[in-house]
Amino acid sequence: MIKVTIDDIEVEVEPGTTILNAARQIGGEVVPPAMCYYSKLPGTGGKCRTCLVEVAAGSTADPRPMPKLMASCSTTVMDGMIVKNKTSERVHDNRGGVVEFLLINHPLDCPICDQAGECHLQDLGYEHGSAKTRYREERRTFDPIDIGNKIKLHMNRCILCYRCVHVANQLTDHRVHGVMHRGEHAEISTYIQNAVENDFSGNMIDVCPVGALTDKTFRFKSRVWFLKPMEAECACTKCSGKAVVWMFGNEIYRVTARKDKYGEVENIEDKTAWICNDCRFDKKDPSKWNIIGPRKIDRHSVISQGKYETKIDKGLNKIG
């Protein structure tokens, strides 16, 4: 085990752990935000640059500070490393810069975006963004396209985190979409609007940190904070069948995988509980699900507005 100090908090981690995962072991405010890194998808990370941190001392053996800010998701810790995240002015400053970059071409159409309320870019903008834009130019725009009959792609909102590309590479049998073009013109797309058809392609929607990939069976049905997320399970031959159903009254509006506080799909019995497209898109009948109980939602989340969480807490206490 090696020791690393993040924002004056010491933690012991396994060798080979990244700074970000070490910070997640501490939890709370010292965890840098991550828009592209996804712990369940090997190979992700390093692209969005929101998780940059200052390394004030490289290790006990070589205590020199690292001159550049380091991407915490892809930098492994060394024994005696001292990392500054919240406590570094430089980090705060540069993170603001990254958020500004991510937002200059973003349409800021949150009022009509289905991701609003559970959007990582919204959270990030709230925390590190500025109220005004300095961008006077016309924003880059694309037409929304259907990739398959269940997924809508709004490239305008995409931040090119590459997560969905990794999902297609790792969860489906073959990838038919990817990043095309270069630089500012780079876009997620399929050749000639190919359909993305695979039993697990719907997980692209879950990993998308913004509203670029949305569920066509749920689009414009409701704001997410009007729905009640309930843990549910069903007998499914393709996936674990463990999901969250988002309900309004007795109706199921949408089905997602169970996500943790970092927005990542949870591990259940050591396996990442991705759900299949049948469960996600086609099982909207409550009788097909065994509804276990309310899903715990962070009290800072807009989804728990109206003291929703306290009600759940009481409910959970009764069950427990």
Binding site: K47, G97, I159, L160, G183, E184
Partner: peptide, 21 residues
């Protein structure tokens, strides 16, 4: 540089295009 940025990481992708404009 805006034309040649690979578009992988956000500061370069968005920043080079912004500077160009």
């Amino acid at each position: 540089y805006a034309h040649e940025s690979c578009g992988q990481c956000s500061p370069c992708r968005e920043g080079t295009g912004w500077m160009e404009k």
